[in-house]
Nucleic acid binder design. Structure first.
Lengths: 117, 117
DNA sequence: AAACTTGTTCTAGTCCGCATAGAACAGTTA
DNA sequence: TAACTGTTCTATGCGGACTAGAACAAGTTT
């Protein structure tokens, strides 16, 4: 599994890390059940602090994509479908653009709701 | 033209200002050629610093949406077209994919709502 | 059981972008 | 000319991001 980071990007490092893993799941680079690199290892490999990696991992847990347990590490949840991860990524992109245009949360969700019906 | 600001939002004030104007242009609230409120006036109205407003305006200029000139103020460029259509298209693509995955409307809107917060 | 691994929590410090403030400056308009 | 408006400059305070180190707890390995 490859995680790349751009220190010059305005995006926070922890967000870049979670995005990279999210993408890995989406494109099938990481399979459900697979174990992510240990936080200390990845931190060392990226030249980044342990806490920064952990923060990224915890964001993924909040989305229900991975499981974090001491001793075992970070594991992609078996029911984490790559397609859903991809959709989540698309949602991220959509939300970013909507926010850039100044649309409110209700306006965007309403657009989606109408489009779904 | 109405510009609203949320001091508690994690989004920077200058970004909120540029987003508000961008939205106004996108939805047709502000017509091409129209003049934006003076930076000092808007700053006073929003309870915000002059430089903060100016920074938002300059972001819009960098995007080619407005023209800034001393003495004249900020003017929406005649060729500044609505960009909401593209977003609407992105929403359509998103819901199509979501439907293909068998997700319910509430599940999708919930994903968007969470991502927007 | 003992040793090791790994995430969790806590404190603390540095750095940088955001926002504020005030002033002087330079085109535009009336 | 006088009033208006964006431009540029210096300076200050605040908060989040990131780093750093340590101790801790739960799971795995031998």
């Amino acid at each position: 599994m490859l995680v790349r980071i751009d220190p010059d990007s305005p995006a926070p490092l922890h967000a870049q890390i979670s995005a990279a893993v999210r993408r890995g799941i989406a494109v099938g680079e990481i399979a459900p059940g697979e174990r992510l690199p240990g936080a200390r290892d990845l931190a060392a490999a990226l030249g980044v602090n342990l806490h920064t990696v952990l923060r990224g991992y915890q964001e993924l847990r909040a989305e229900g994509l991975v499981e974090l347990r001491r001793g075992r590490g970070a594991q992609v949840r078996p029911d984490a479908a790559p397609a859903v991860a991809a959709l989540r990524q698309a949602v991220h992109a959509l939300v970013d653009e909507a926010r850039r245009l100044g649309l409110s949360a209700t306006e965007v969700t309403e657009m989606v709701r109408e489009a779904m019906t």
